[in-house]
Amino acid sequence: MTRFHILLFLSLIISVLSNGCGNQSQNTEVQNFETKEDSFNRKPERLIFTKHGKCRMNCRSIDSLEVDEILKKGHINYVKSDTSSNNPCRKKYALEGTTRDNQLVRIIFSPCNDTQTVVTVIDMDTDWDCDCK
């Protein structure tokens, strides 16, 4: 074997070993994500709608059954969520999913004790003309 072949072989081994280590840390991140996902209350005793949330639902033709469906089955988008507060009642979770009439929506929920408050509702495909304050 020439030096070139030996160096190529060693490069290949280092590449394989470093990819293996990368996969382990990636699995850890996925595991942490699932742990956070499991802590979100998808079956609150009460669902509260803010005035702004109701207005956005109305102008975007999204009803409370669709909100409930996203609450139960939607995926949490942690990039659009604000979970940094130490006060659990100040956290906001952005849940995304498709409603029964095929609207791709993001709904911002704010949990507190055994309730979930609907803060706002966003149609991710259509920019509706709403006059909500």
Score class of each variant (00 low, 15 high):
46 R>D: 12
23 N>G: 02
113 N>V: 14
34 E>T: 02
10 L>E: 14
53 G>A: 08
96 E>Q: 15
77 N>H: 06
121 V>D: 02
71 L>M: 00
113 N>T: 05
25 S>I: 13
88 P>V: 03
34 E>V: 06
112 C>G: 07
120 T>A: 05
82 D>R: 12
60 R>C: 09
118 V>E: 03
5 H>Y: 12
38 D>C: 07
90 R>N: 09
129 D>G: 10
50 T>S: 10
46 R>N: 14
77 N>Y: 03
74 G>E: 03
57 M>T: 01
104 L>T: 11
67 V>T: 06
22 G>F: 07
78 Y>L: 09
48 I>D: 02
27 N>S: 14
116 Q>G: 09
24 Q>P: 04
48 I>G: 02
104 L>G: 04
73 K>L: 06
68 D>N: 13
50 T>K: 12
9 F>I: 13
15 S>T: 15
124 M>T: 03
88 P>W: 08
116 Q>F: 01
130 C>W: 01
79 V>I: 12
6 I>R: 12
90 R>A: 13
103 Q>V: 13
35 T>H: 13
118 V>A: 03
43 K>W: 00
35 T>L: 13
54 K>G: 04
99 T>Y: 02
85 S>Q: 11
55 C>Q: 00
34 E>R: 15
131 D>H: 07
103 Q>R: 13
7 L>W: 14
103 Q>D: 11
46 R>E: 09
5 H>E: 15
57 M>G: 00
122 I>T: 14
42 R>G: 02
27 N>K: 14
32 N>F: 15
26 Q>P: 00
115 T>R: 01
126 T>H: 11
75 H>Y: 07
75 H>A: 15
129 D>V: 06
20 G>H: 13
22 G>R: 09
11 S>M: 14
36 K>F: 11
39 S>E: 07
29 E>H: 07
123 D>S: 03
91 K>M: 03
54 K>R: 08
43 K>P: 06
126 T>C: 11
58 N>E: 14
93 Y>H: 06
82 D>Q: 14
120 T>Y: 09
54 K>Y: 11
102 N>M: 14
114 D>L: 15
1 M>W: 13
37 E>R: 10
116 Q>N: 11
133 K>N: 13
1 M>R: 14
32 N>G: 11
49 F>M: 08
115 T>V: 04
39 S>N: 03
51 K>N: 07
41 N>W: 03
89 C>R: 06
30 V>M: 06
20 G>Y: 15
5 H>L: 15
98 T>N: 09
80 K>L: 15
43 K>Q: 10
83 T>P: 02
37 E>K: 08
103 Q>L: 10
2 T>V: 08
88 P>C: 04
107 I>V: 09
111 P>N: 02
67 V>D: 02
15 S>C: 13
85 S>G: 12
123 D>P: 00
121 V>A: 00
132 C>L: 12
